[in-house]
Simulated scan of single mutants.
Amino acid sequence: MPYKKLILSTILTITLLGCGSTPAPGPRFTLGQMESDTLFNNHQQFLNNYQSAQITQAEQALVESWPSDIEFNVYFGTWCHDSEREVPKLLKLLSYNKTLTISLIGLDYKKTEPNGGAKANGVQFTPTIIVTRAGKELGRIVEQPAVSLVSDIHQIIKKHSV
């Protein structure tokens, strides 16, 4: 009986230690500024989700109406399921307005990256989509939109339109 407890205790300890450790960077882990091509070439699920994203004509029309000086800073994890869902959809949406600027910044598990932008912008969750104009933050979407990416972004832009 004592051996059974020892064995169970050892298995439990090993399991807990394994779950608490941070996995080493690998193919699911890309850090820093990147282009969408790099993201899609190195992370198949992002490409799959981009290709399967459905954009309605109404959503396309809204995106096309957004001012050309709007910028998007997208902090995300290539290891994060919320990022896998939201970032490809955002990229598909923004493909309908080539005048918009988007910066993709890959984060590690601690939500940091080499340039320190995530920390400077108070990023705590992934993805965090920061909408800016002329260097001023207009608003952000954290983890997932309240209604939809198009609707939430449109409301952010509309709220700050002159």
Rank of each mutant, 00 (worst) to 15 (best):
M1K: 09
P2L: 13
Y3Q: 15
K4S: 12
L8A: 12
L8H: 10
L8Q: 11
S9M: 11
T10N: 04
T10K: 04
T10G: 10
T10W: 07
T10H: 03
I11A: 05
I11Y: 00
I11H: 00
T13I: 15
L17Q: 06
C19V: 15
C19H: 11
G20R: 09
T22Y: 09
P23G: 07
P23F: 13
P27D: 13
R28Q: 12
G32C: 05
G32H: 07
E35V: 09
E35M: 13
S36C: 03
D37A: 15
D37H: 12
L39M: 08
F40K: 06
F40T: 06
N41P: 04
H43E: 09
Q45M: 12
F46V: 11
N48V: 06
N48L: 10
N48R: 12
N49M: 11
Y50H: 10
Y50S: 07
Q51K: 13
A53H: 03
Q54E: 14
I55Y: 06
T56F: 08
Q57H: 13
A58H: 07
E59N: 08
E59K: 06
Q60W: 03
A61R: 13
A61M: 07
L62H: 14
V63Y: 01
V63G: 02
V63Q: 01
E64L: 05
S65T: 08
W66D: 00
W66C: 00
P67L: 01
S68Y: 07
D69S: 02
D69F: 08
D69W: 05
I70C: 04
F72T: 00
N73E: 12
V74H: 00
Y75K: 02
Y75I: 05
F76P: 00
G77D: 03
T78P: 00
W79M: 03
E84I: 10
E86Q: 13
V87I: 13
V87S: 02
P88Q: 06
K89W: 05
K89H: 14
K89P: 03
L90H: 08
L91S: 04
L91G: 03
K92E: 02
L93R: 06
L94R: 01
S95R: 03
Y96A: 15
K98E: 15
L100R: 11
I102T: 15
S103K: 15
G106H: 04
L107C: 09
D108Y: 01
D108V: 02
Y109P: 05
Y109H: 15
Y109W: 12
K110T: 10
G116S: 09
G116Y: 09
A120K: 15
A120N: 12
A120M: 09
N121Y: 06
Q124D: 08
F125A: 15
T126L: 13
P127F: 09
P127Q: 08
T128G: 01
T128M: 03
I129Y: 03
V131S: 00
V131F: 00
T132L: 14
T132E: 10
T132C: 07
A134C: 04
A134T: 13
A134K: 14
G139L: 05
R140L: 06
R140M: 03
Q144I: 09
P145T: 08
L149I: 04
L149H: 00
V150G: 02
S151N: 13
I153G: 00
H154Q: 15
I156E: 04
I156C: 04
K159L: 13
K159C: 04
H160W: 10
S161T: 14
S161V: 10
